[in-house]
């Protein structure tokens, strides 16, 4: 991506985000992104020593474990309840692998 974001960049980001958007939507997003990105990237101007650690989580200082005991979870019927397409107790997804001749 170049320093000034263009329509191709937005299209590429939408593709990475698994969103199919119209040209009109992409153009609108580009306008907003150009306005916001400067503010959002302000952190890149901060002078930080290499020694400063990254914080990626807050909370417990140690790993949290539980006993390795099987517990009841959602049953198949409940887990499938909100699915649009199901077959024989399974989710139906788009075919990913095709047979070659």
């Amino acid at each position: 991506m170049s320093s000034q974001m263009d329509l191709n960049d937005v299209e590429y980001l939408a593709q990475l985000s698994k969103l199919s958007l119209s040209q009109k939507q992409l153009k609108k997003i580009l306008v907003d992104l150009r306005a916001i990105i400067g503010h959002m990237s302000k952190v890149s101007k901060m002078k930080l020593s290499k020694k400063i650690p990254r914080t990626n989580r807050l909370g417990n200082e140690q790993n949290v474990w539980r006993e390795d005991v099987v517990e009841t979870s959602l049953n198949q019927e409940v887990a499938l309840k909100n699915a649009k397409r199901k077959y024989n107790g399974y989710f139906v997804v788009k075919q990913l692998v095709r047979k070659t001749k």
Binding site: M40, S41, V43, S44, M46, L48, I52, P53, R54, T55, N56
Partner: peptide, 14 residues
């Protein structure tokens, strides 16, 4: 430049 730097800056703010 962005995400990881923000995590470092997060430490600074804390």
């Amino acid at each position: 430049k962005l995400y990881k730097k923000a995590q470092k800056a997060r430490t600074v703010l804390i």
